[in-house]
Design a protein around this nucleic acid. Structure first.
Length: 503
RNA sequence: GCGCCCAUAGCUCAACUGGUAGAGCAAGUGACUCUUAAUCACUAGGUUCCAGGUUCGAUUCCUGGUGGGCGUACCA
């Protein structure tokens, strides 16, 4: 049923949108339904293009559907390009074939309208593969203009590439910019391959709470929200870790989860307040197992996404073919800076760090000094995938003590392109030790460290039931997606990234 | 959080040292039955981000705000 007034009088419309609403009214007046319920298309444009020679010889009809992205009207004939999810095809319309009524409908079409079209394939004079249209159906009238893009093949005269606009108006971005689609499709392939991989290794996918009474499993400031009926504050998870371990304790020896974590912290090229984390836990294994698994996983996912294990990111080739370099943190710091970090007193270490050009705050612990040394002097140069093993105990409250080196834990992080991609450890399963470490954290929290989470008694109670020795890993899905797609900003691999609200 | 830069028509941009805005594309009308950045003719389109200030006069200069970009800090 045509609405009485397609032009809502309350809306302030610019002349372009007004014109489209007037066309909509004229379409109703001609007796057409501009928003029908369904359409039978029988082929994707890509297939028509790929098998053009055979299919055009057959002279049979094909019906396709998509969005009009260009329109060239020439009196009693017209050309248009139709885009569907697989490609673009030129359409050729003629008044004598469509008939007067349908031709009139055709003249009311705009760039952006979605139509279904049926006809046979032919080659134009200039050699472009085209569809000779015998009938078409308007499937959705577009009331808002797309930004004007002028392009021919690779040559583009007006590209719509204002970054902010692209983030804010993803539907338009996806319609106009093929690379956006490509990046996000690759991300989808990555996530799918992660699931395949863990599934094949016998991991069970579980879902843990995003709303948590106590947050934990990482050091970060949380988002706080409120449940009305329970009348209490809840936190958005900053990590899945403590719940996945509860699942292991409960007798699920291999579990994984791919989920959003939320951290109430700064936004920049590498950080988004909500981001996707993949965590996996394997009972009866240690961090060496996790490292082996990660090597295999990165090779498999890189290959699944790009067809080969090597990528180019920020102008550098990164090859995910195993084995990756493995080096302990004390060793690489000694190698690159000459500083020995094992069993050092704070004051000496602070002095040597300052001498190496690293600023050290007065209240920093040994662990924080080591972290600063590493992240400033070593990490940026870790371009090829590299495991850094064995971290200072203070920075790793959930990791098991190293089996042979005092003051360290069995933990590794994997770096590639200078980015931290994976964090993994032999999970701490000694409940007494875990309680002590939490208490140490609680002291720091009392001293004003907002990022240290509160003590989680419920988790400790679970741990006291007994957790098998377990390897755990967390993989930053967004960052991996960046590496695999060549994206230089995390927003590029997030379909709808968070932005400041418009005034 | 700090520093630097940006904001003009639907879009991309222009307007010399301050003199109240202009082009291409998009849009509308007309012509055109193989065009493809279609072409040709005509028409319409502006609170120059917002609020103050200086000035006879502000898109232009100043202050504050809003939004954005880049860098930097924080983020095991």
């Amino acid at each position: 049923m045509p609405p009485e007034q397609p032009v809502e009088p309350s809306l302030e419309l610019d002349h372009v949108m007004l014109a489209r609403r007037e066309k909509l009214q004229r379409i109703y007046n001609l007796g057409f339904e501009p928003y029908p319920n369904s359409y039978n298309r029988n082929v994707a444009i890509r297939l028509l293009l790929e098998d053009f020679d055979a299919l055009s010889a057959a002279k049979s009809n094909y019906s396709i559907a998509g969005r009009i992205i260009s329109l060239r009207l020439m009196g009693k004939a017209a050309f248009a390009h139709l885009q569907d999810e697989s490609g673009r095809l030129q359409l050729y319309f003629r008044k004598d074939i469509l008939g007067d009524l349908n031709w009139e409908l055709f003249t009311l079409l705009d760039i952006g309208d979605i139509i279904g079209a049926e006809g046979y394939l032919f080659l134009t004079k200039t050699g472009e593969r085209s569809l000779h249209i015998e009938r078409f159906t308007l499937l959705a009238k577009s009331l808002r203009p797309l930004p004007a893009v002028k392009e021919k093949g690779e040559q583009v005269w007006f590209r719509w590439d204002d970054k902010e606009e692209r983030y804010r108006h993803r539907p338009i971005d996806l319609i106009l910019n093929r690379d956006t689609r490509e990046v996000l499709l690759k991300r989808s392939r990555l996530v799918k391959e992660l699931r395949n991989f863990f599934d094949a290794k016998g991991f069970v996918e579980v879902e843990t709470p995003a709303l948590q009474p106590i947050y934990g499993g990482a050091a970060a400031r949380p988002f706080v929200t409120h449940h009305n009926t329970l009348d209490r504050d809840l936190y958005l998870r900053i990590a899945d870790e403590l719940y996945l371990k509860r699942a292991v304790i409960g007798g699920m020896p291999r579990v994984f989860e791919i989920a959003k974590d939320f951290r109430n912290e700064g936004i920049d090229r590498m950080h988004s307040p909500e981001f996707t984390m993949c965590e996996a836990y394997a009972a009866y294994e240690d961090y060496s197992f996790a490292a082996d698994l990660i090597e295999e996983l990165l090779f498999a996912t890189a290959t699944a996404v790009n067809g080969r294990p090597a990528v180019v990111w920020e102008d550098r080739a990164i090859d995910f073919t195993p084995p990756f370099k493995r080096i302990s943190m004390p060793e690489i710091i000694l190698d690159k800076t000459g500083i020995n970090i094992v069993q050092r007193r704070r004051e000496e270490l602070a002095l040597e760090a300052r001498r190496a050009g690293v600023e050290v705050e007065a209240n920093w612990s040994v662990g924080q000094i080591i972290d600063a040394l590493f992240s400033q002097l070593i990490q940026p140069a870790l371009i090829q995938p590299t495991f850094i093993l064995d971290y200072p105990i203070e920075l790793s409250p959930l990791a098991k003590r190293h089996r042979s080196i005092d003051g360290l834990v069995e933990r590794f992080e994997l770096f590639a392109g200078g980015l931290e991609i994976v964090n993994a450890f032999s999970e701490l399963n000694d409940p007494i030790d875990q309680r002590r470490r939490f208490e140490e954290q609680a002291r720091r929290r009392a001293e004003g460290d907002e990022e240290t989470p509160p003590l989680d008694e419920d988790f400790l109670a679970a741990l006291e039931l007994g957790m098998p020795p377990t390897a755990g890993l967390g993989l930053g899905v967004d960052r991996l997606a960046m590496l695999f797609t060549g994206a230089s900003a995390i927003r590029d691999v997030i379909l709808f990234p968070i932005l400041r609200t418009r005034a």
